[in-house]
């Protein structure tokens, strides 16, 4: 089966400015997160994939179709939800979604039927006969999602879908994205600067920085690899505790005086840590399984850069320069 997106030395130049430079890689995830600080080139990459901007160097393929020669075919496979407010004024929502479905090639009757269905699906069923200019921001975002999925595309590109949404609407949007992902009928590419959104929806990420790929990895595999990754917050003789867990075969690192990160080897359980803590009269105030390392990956990709990225729900992961023997890193 063809990969979802193949980047083959893709570059985009506006004037003398290199916006995207030599992007290479293969993206296969069910939901691909496109991350990066503002100005990293996320939206330009999406626009180039959609054929809005011509590629200056190299090319890319979506489901094996080249973006430079098969732009029309690609656009029939893709549904796009733009970042900014995009709609047609003085139109009811159902009329708007129907028009978009017809432009994707659906006959008028089928387009109308699918417009109703997709609006019910995103939760705008009751408001579908209202004109779009009377919609709230959250409703407009959902209407944009409805028009992106109305023709049943194989790839749905969502550019900042949770921008400006209140928490309940954001949760609804995330739930819809996950439902579509889990249906297996469409792949998703989600561009966001909110790590939390990507973390909740995506299984693969592509991190861009200054128009280049800073990281490309499979989050599922990272999560599996980090199953035994634990963070502890302690009071007492932390050094002695750390040396003792080190003797059990744990790799560890202090993130600050009271916080310790460690990886449990096979055969070592949590209760062993409590035993050691009790023996050394150390209080374990907090113990977290670090479920994923998205923020780690992102920060590493940014090389500690000063980004405007919102923190994830998981604790901070500034890795200290000590390891199992006090010298490595995690």
């Amino acid at each position: 089966m063809n990969p979802v997106i193949e980047l083959d030395g893709l570059g985009v130049v506006f004037g003398k400015r290199h916006i995207l430079q030599d992007l290479r890689g293969t993206l296969n995830g069910r939901a691909i997160g496109l991350l990066g600080p503002n100005g990293a080139g996320k939206t330009t990459l999406i626009h180039t994939l959609l054929g809005f901007h011509p590629a200056t160097h190299g090319t890319a393929r979506i489901f094996g179709e080249d973006i430079t020669t098969e732009a029309r075919r690609i656009r029939s496979l893709v549904g796009y939800m733009p970042e900014r407010d995009s709609f047609i004024a003085k139109m009811t929502c159902v009329h708007f979604v129907r028009l978009m479905a017809e432009l994707s090639g659906m006959p008028p009757d089928a387009a109308l039927e699918r417009a109703h269905e997709s609006l019910f699906y995103v939760g705008l069923g009751e408001a579908r006969y209202r004109t779009l200019d009377t919609y709230s921001l959250g409703m407009k975002q959902l209407a944009k999602l409805a028009q992106a999925i109305v023709h049943g595309p194989k790839l749905i590109i969502l550019d900042e879908p949770t921008n400006g949404l209140d928490p309940p609407t954001r949760l609804r949007m995330i739930r819809l994205i996950r439902e579509i992902r889990d249906s297996g009928e469409a792949r998703i590419m989600l561009s966001s600067h909110l790590l939390r959104d990507v973390e909740e929806c995506c299984d693969e990420i592509l991190v861009l920085k200054d128009g280049r790929i800073a990281a490309n990895c499979n989050l599922e595999e990272e999560r599996k690899a980090n199953r035994k990754f634990i963070e502890l917050e302690m009071r007492g003789d932390n050094r002695a505790f750390a040396e003792a867990v080190g003797r059990l075969g744990c790799e560890y690192a202090f993130t600050n005086e009271r916080r310790l990160k460690l990886v449990l080897p096979e055969g070592v359980e949590i209760r062993d840590l409590y035993k050691i803590a009790a023996e050394r009269e150390v209080q374990i105030r907090r113990l977290n399984y670090k479920r994923d390392s998205l923020e780690d990956i992102f920060l590493k990709a940014m090389e500690g850069g000063d980004t405007m990225v919102e923190a994830t729900a998981t604790p901070s992961a500034t890795v200290a320069a000590t390891g199992g023997n006090g010298n490595g890193s995690l």
Binding site: L50, F52, R72, R73, R75, S76, V78, Y80, P82, R84, D85, S86, F87, I88, A89, K90, M100, L103, S104, G105, Q147, H151
Partner: peptide, 17 residues
């Protein structure tokens, strides 16, 4: 009207030139 409401990306992201 389309330009004011930023509708062109919606038209042009479809198989429509």
């Amino acid at each position: 009207r389309d330009l004011a409401n930023n509708a062109l990306p919606l038209y042009l992201s479809r198989p429509f030139t």
